[in-house]
Amino acid sequence: MIRYTLGRLLSLIISLVIASLVIFSVIEVIPGDPASFMLGINAREDTLAALRSEMGLDQPLVVRYFDWVIGLLQGDFGNSWTYKTPVSELISDRIWVSLPLAIYALILSTLIAFPAGILAASRRGGASDVTIMGATQMGVAIPNFWFAMIMVLIFAIHLRWFSAGGFPGWSNPLQGIKSLTLPAISLALPQAAILARIMRSSLLDMLSEDFIRTARAKGLTRGQALWRHAVRNALIPVLTIIGLQFSFLLAGGIIIEQIFFLPGLGRLIFQAISARDLIVVESVVMLLVFTVIIVNFAVDIAYAAVDPRLRIKA
């Protein structure tokens, strides 16, 4: 297990290095000079040169890459060219919205999907299976922003249980959670639908395995065989999907953030791209890549915890 973890850790570091190289070079080859963009087309040549050297754009590529990476490691992401504030501040303001939202949505989707998937699999072909499968079919088909709008209509406008948007900050944690509830549900529903379907089919695969028959021959009931032997084996594909979903939820909630006026990462990156604030784009993308890689690492470790066969392979 230790060897496996070290092996995964090594691959995590390699992925991070490669990702940083790719992000850096993609941003570099994008046409358009940030300095001239900031100063406008009528800027004088010497002013441009001065700004370039201030922003460090006149340095050789290698030097700039290492400056950037060393800065990242020290938590110094540089200054935003449009906001004129440190990028780290911009990000940390928003990550406290996006990260809790993503985790909240993921917890909700898992809480919905696991029971639904397990119930559907154990009642295969029965009424609950048909109902759950029908519901997930709709969940997959209907986009999350539509759920968001319907929920605003019902819970914010008619019932007035939640506010329709905005984020009051974490000074009152309950208020914070409350304002993230509708967005989290709208993000979670389509994900839950996908996850429930994966859980069901993975479980059904497991239920036809020989070891389930062996378990039944030992005297386990259908339900016991499912819980004790099938669920854990069925988790591998489910974990993969959960890992993918978390990465999506962290940055992909841009439409939901827009609908609920949430100051999240999605909106930040959208604004930074429109303003050609490359340093912000670079930093946020790097941060997202970092999160994805860390989540994948966690999923890999979870695989090994679930399945002992993976522990011996490096």
Binding site: F211, R213, T214, A217, G219, N233, V306
Partner: peptide, 27 residues
């Protein structure tokens, strides 16, 4: 079925053909 469950494994046991897949890999 309920009584059968308590008989299986206690009054009658069964061994299957494929030893490679007859055991739960994660236990």
């Amino acid at each position: 079925e309920h009584d059968l469950c308590s008989m299986r494994g206690r009054a009658m046991g069964m061994v299957f053909q494929e030893p490679m897949t007859a055991l739960n890999p994660v236990k």
